[in-house]
Design a protein around this nucleic acid. Sequence first.
DNA 1: CGCGGATTTGAATAGTATCAATACAGGTGG
DNA 2: CCACCTGTATTGATACTATTCAAATCCGCG
Lengths: 242, 242
Amino acid sequence: MEERLDVHNSSIPKLCRSCEVRHRGICGALKPEELLELSKYTRRVDYPAGKEISGDSEDVVSYSTIMHGVVKLSKMLEDGRQQVVGLQFAPDLIGRMFSIKNHFTAEAASNIQLCKMPKAALERLIKKNPEIEHKLLEQTLRELDEAREWMVTLGRKTAAEKVACFLYLIATHIDPTYIDGNLENLTFELPLTRADIADFLGLTIETVSRQFTKLRTDGIIEISVGRNICVPDLAKLKERCG
Amino acid sequence: MEERLDVHNSSIPKLCRSCEVRHRGICGALKPEELLELSKYTRRVDYPAGKEISGDSEDVVSYSTIMHGVVKLSKMLEDGRQQVVGLQFAPDLIGRMFSIKNHFTAEAASNIQLCKMPKAALERLIKKNPEIEHKLLEQTLRELDEAREWMVTLGRKTAAEKVACFLYLIATHIDPTYIDGNLENLTFELPLTRADIADFLGLTIETVSRQFTKLRTDGIIEISVGRNICVPDLAKLKERCG
DNA sequence: CGCGGATTTGAATAGTATCAATACAGGTGG
DNA sequence: CCACCTGTATTGATACTATTCAAATCCGCG
């Protein structure tokens, strides 16, 4: 299998050959010649934590595949109240397909790298290869499931449960030491500030902080310097999710 | 335009010819022969308010286009807490595409009629005509936008704002007298019980009831017998949405 | 070392939930 | 036709959770 792929490597663009997410993201649906075509227009871009990628109501000018790091989608009310409506991880595609304007603000939550392509380049490719649209539909359906799952957390869970849910989400999404059923001694760095976490959970930073403290004194998590978290027993954390 | 369509009507299945939502739902993407093919397997089904259409974690066996009425998607926690994660109106397609199992419970909120088709029938058609998948992607993206928009309401709005948002949502989605910019004297019947509304807003029925009373005494809405609501000035209601 | 942003902790308050009682509407049967 | 019953909605009194406001602590960094 690996070898067969290697046979064709000469036709895979140089930039893509080293791409870690190529087979999992939308590029996995591309034929070598399509990948070559698309790669003419793509470029890797780094964003430091906190930098805005695209603003609410701004025109959609490009799409990006997340190479690594966490992207935060949010929406702000006129009076400044803010809600994070989604977190995205590699290899998700960001940018609202088929819409002139964005409906949310996208921002780098951690330091990230994107593989950015012009809006027109991807849309042209989609018209030619419906397989891409299928991949996009599957990602969108998954995001919709996740959004609805999160609505349960926002609408019906207590502050303690919300914070546990959040930690569980992060633990199972970004940690390199987490593989499927591994439940012990997960360690990771939180990709979000307390303010971001509060905006994701519909709480205040004070409440989030208090719940972190409670989880620590209860022995569910260990907090070392900064945002480093250790979860000795993931099952115990899960129990707290309500 | 109308006449040109009529020319081809002979090839349009009898059941579909009278279908009000045909051009707006997924069927709008079908060629006459595909519509004929699909219509062999579809049937109209009525559900009374409150009846379950499909249960959480049950196998997906069919898809349905909503003909009329409101469908409620919800999820329940082990201890009985419930959250409504979406409302769907004609001509939405319900049923989780490409998944063995449902991730949510679907239930008739009002009396509804569905146009039901077996899972395999639609999936076969999708393989042949990618245009359908495009329609589905557009609906899914729209639902995702709406879900995220609602997350702002759930996470960051007060009880008063939540109830106003809900009424605004219903007023702009089900009322036949509402056309685009029409802002005056909208009347409609609430398709949900107070319990459903509470579960949609992440509140209790008592809080919902109190906020209804407040909106009534403030002159924003009029409540006649049962669930009949009149909104004299939609703009005033919108102001209350935060 | 000292500054500024991020986080934690504390005390008082506000907003919702909870519990309990009452009112209302629609349907049933005498 | 009315009394009754049931499910639904409203109203009231109290409890509790999370917010608000305020202050202290921690951390990285020039």
